[in-house]
């Protein structure tokens, strides 16, 4: 047993609590700002304790919208973000699983070529090919659409690798048994591989959902129609309008709403989140 000195334990807790407070401070300030009325939010110094206008602001944000995005309900932006994040998550999982299945369980010409082509995507994040990718999406008439928002982001080398890794640990006897029982590839995939990969799928879902929800540059480029704004880029539009009308309480309310879904996912599904993070990133 390692020694437990009261003083060092106290010191450890002290530093950790300072760390937690430091990490949480910006969120606390946001919450406080979201709970005061607009008039209070232009008086210096700003409050450090919450006020009682929280639900008023919530209602205002949902019914009237904020800043440059005036008339654009925050609800609609949240919905756009949700649709985009879900499309990216489901799309990524589906296509990665199918290609990993083909690469692990079949022997066919160009198998390795395909594998390396998928691998290369790892080295081509959207940021390094923005202009030409934008042109492709524009030529395909996918600007201002959910397809344009999600499809270019769903190809994934890491997800394919993760499923490949999972499938490689599935005992060969299962496949032999399935084949003796007369199961074809599709049957095997649905009845055996899908149930086996359940936790992996869930873990990946958590990570990809957050990735999709937090996209910024891509929606910024391809959405010009206010109806297609996602919440994360919507905040930017609001902050820009702050010079004319500093509606900080409403902006911070929207900010709070923008980070709520992914934060709830991370904290609520912590075990899956950690599994997903450590397994897809290596």
């Amino acid at each position: 047993m390692i020694e437990q000195r009261p003083l060092t334990s106290f010191f450890s807790h002290f530093i950790l609590i300072c760390g937690v407070l430091l990490v949480a401070f910006p969120i606390w300030i946001t919450f406080v700002a979201a709970s005061h009325d607009t008039a209070r939010m232009v008086q210096v110094p700003l409050p450090l304790l919450p006020g009682n206008h929280f639900f008023e602001n919530l209602l205002e944000a949902f019914t009237h919208g904020v800043g440059n995005a005036k008339g654009q309900s925050v609800g609609l932006m949240l919905m756009n973000s949700l649709i985009m994040a879900l499309m990216i998550a489901f799309g990524k999982i589906a296509i990665s699983m199918l290609s990993a299945f083909a690469i692990v369980y079949f022997r066919f010409p160009f198998r390795m070529t395909f594998f390396w082509m998928i691998f290369i995507t790892l080295m081509l994040p959207v940021e390094v090919r923005i202009l030409p990718t934008f042109e492709v999406v524009a030529n395909l008439h996918m600007l201002n659409s959910y397809w344009g928002l999600s499809i270019p982001l769903i190809a994934s080398a890491t997800a394919t690798f993760m499923f490949r890794q999972t499938f490689l640990t599935v005992p060969d006897e299962l496949l032999e048994a399935a084949r003796i029982d007369g199961a074809g590839p599709i049957r095997f995939f649905i009845d055996i591989l899908l149930p086996i990969s359940r936790t992996n799928i869930a873990a990946l879902f958590v990570i990809v959902f957050i990735y999709g929800w937090n996209q910024y540059m891509w929606p910024l480029l391809i959405t010009t129609d206010k109806d297609m704004y996602t919440i994360v880029m919507g905040i930017k539009q609001m902050v820009e309008a702050v010079e004319e009308a500093p509606e900080w309480s409403l902006i911070m309310m929207t900010t709070l709403l923008a980070m709520l879904p992914p934060v709830v996912v991370v904290i609520g599904m912590q075990r899956l989140f950690i599994k997903g993070l450590t397994e897809t990133e290596k």
Binding site: T30, K236, V266
Partner: peptide, 14 residues
């Protein structure tokens, strides 16, 4: 879980 742009907005406000 906080988007970079959102993190930016938080710090900018502070």
């Amino acid at each position: 879980a906080v988007a970079p742009a959102v993190a930016g907005a938080l710090w900018m406000f502070m």
